[in-house]
């Protein structure tokens, strides 16, 4: 539950980008978070509301989009997306090797874009 401090980071970046482009009214922030990043999207959205209400950014919304986990097998190189139940051992569908695979995506935590006027 560190969503509040994540949103503080988000707002700092958003304000910087808005100033850079001479924008004053924020409409939307699109955040991308990997399946493995410890982020609860609803908590992120609530934290965003809490920290913007009564400020110059009030009324804007935060949209969180999850980036699915994708790994490359450390043994045979097969690329696959483990299901939620398989997320711990991550057995490779091609050769059965578990764990220690190279994570291709699923760790992301970044602001993709903003919409503002």
């Amino acid at each position: 539950m560190h969503e509040l401090s994540l949103v503080e980071g988000i707002l700092a970046i958003v304000r910087e980008e808005m100033a850079k482009h001479g924008l004053t009214r924020l409409v939307r922030v699109r955040v991308k978070h990997g399946e493995l990043s410890a982020v609860v999207p609803e908590a992120l959205e609530t934290a965003f509301e809490v920290l913007t209400v009564g400020t110059d950014l009030a009324g804007a919304c935060l949209e969180a989009e999850m980036v699915p986990l994708r790994v490359r097998c450390r043994q045979c190189g097969e690329e696959f997306s483990p299901s939620e139940e398989e997320r711990f051992l991550m057995p490779c569908p091609a050769c059965g090797t578990e764990l220690g695979h190279h994570v291709l995506s699923g760790r992301e935590l970044y602001i993709d874009h903003i919409e503002a006027e």
Partner: peptide, 14 residues
């Protein structure tokens, strides 16, 4: 307008 940002949220901490 849409502004591409592509910045890590934890960049300040990092």
């Amino acid at each position: 307008m849409q502004v591409e940002v592509a910045r890590n949220i934890l960049e300040a901490n990092d």
